[in-house]
Design a protein around this nucleic acid. Sequence first.
DNA 1: ATGAGCAGTTTGTCTGGACATTCTGACCTC
DNA 2: GAGGTCAGAATGTCCAGACAAACTGCTCAT
Lengths: 246, 246
Amino acid sequence: MTANLAIDLDRSSPVPLYFQVAEQIAEAIRRGDLAPGARLDNEILLADKLGLSRPTIRQAIQYLVDKGLLVRKRGVGTQVVHGQVKRSVELTSLYDDLRRAGQEPATQVIALEPRPVEDDIAAILGVEAGAEVLYLERLRFAAGEPLAVLHNWLPLGLAQLAASDLEARGLYELLRAAGVRLRVANQRIGARAATQAEAKLLDERRGAPLLTMIRTTYDDQGRAVEHGSHVYRASHYSLEVTLIER
Amino acid sequence: MTANLAIDLDRSSPVPLYFQVAEQIAEAIRRGDLAPGARLDNEILLADKLGLSRPTIRQAIQYLVDKGLLVRKRGVGTQVVHGQVKRSVELTSLYDDLRRAGQEPATQVIALEPRPVEDDIAAILGVEAGAEVLYLERLRFAAGEPLAVLHNWLPLGLAQLAASDLEARGLYELLRAAGVRLRVANQRIGARAATQAEAKLLDERRGAPLLTMIRTTYDDQGRAVEHGSHVYRASHYSLEVTLIER
DNA sequence: ATGAGCAGTTTGTCTGGACATTCTGACCTC
DNA sequence: GAGGTCAGAATGTCCAGACAAACTGCTCAT
């Protein structure tokens, strides 16, 4: 029942112990050593086996519960969730997602310039009305085909963004490299018909269904660092999300 | 800087202390007593003030960080996220969402019957191929207008679902009332054009953009308890999601 | 047979403490 | 004035233990 999984710890590593445990359990699930429905050893036994305290084990398990890989039930135990677990929801940009899927993303920068901010965007980003913000418009390709039109507004001074950088890497990756730490994002997802201009850019017919996403991202100080309004070709893209009830 | 918020605890209540703290901080944020960007007292001071231990305070704060209301930064402190925080992502059904928004939802049950399962659905639900599952098809209205067509498949025996129940309440609410504890859901969100049949049901034109959602929900034992394939009128509905980076 | 109650198991909550790591800002040196 | 250094402050990690609550399955009485 309780698979005997081997977990080795490196106490000299800077990687937290709870994280080492969590990673190795997750790996065992991915490999199939821990089948869906399998029960883990109870926390106390597990702590004993690994020479760790129970809080540390709990932290590791909680981490995986939050990611949707495990479920816990008082008086019963901890089990692996049935059904292949999809990639958990992370704060990634489309570019990262595509590259991970082996899709060879490419980007064409249409606009990259400071621009006086409109009032609604100013309110969202928390900058003064009339101030300048960086306006960015891109066309994203995957496997040689146009996939999405991306509009972004960013406060000035966050990072030095060059068009050449944006054509080689994703926006989030560049922000992270510039020391911005993304923490929270609110997204609104909808759909609408393509306008003629959008249809032309995306190689679709006017009226074709597009997936729309409006997103605002905040950093670890709670400041808005990016606002985006994007449209995707529904025929070529869909979004995946995992929800976890606490 | 650090707002002096009054938190009172009831140690005789069955509600966990960390949750009482979290709720009252969240309430202070909603009320505006804690403005966006405001810093909380540090954990040790807070623990001291409330007569709680630091781990308990940490648990309360972590809960709000996970919900996207707060951000923490080592060496600096804990701050309220800028920008009005939307309702966090919870495992709710469309029905709950609509009622919370004061939209007066209504439901018309089109089909509710056991039916031999198709192979792909069987694999998703983890039931044997050829077994029977409950098939459910509903048309959902809001404010008198058709809003979505909902298709669901459920393992038999989970709950006794009557059409009259389904017309008065949401599916998730009924499942919860029957003792099913929903924990994790995987969703895929996309868009496509309406077929003629869908257009007729939803009072749209053929080809109108629809938001699609395919969702599988698991309970606290990791078993699939519901699979749904839904389409929404994009002109009347959009989804909101909050992502948090750990 | 059937139902109620009880005991064991397991996770949930909470305490109190220790040390590590990271960030900020002030100070000092060159 | 520029740059590096260091101390203080805050969160991050980890430990050891205690009691509470919920679930399961067994036992016992009816």
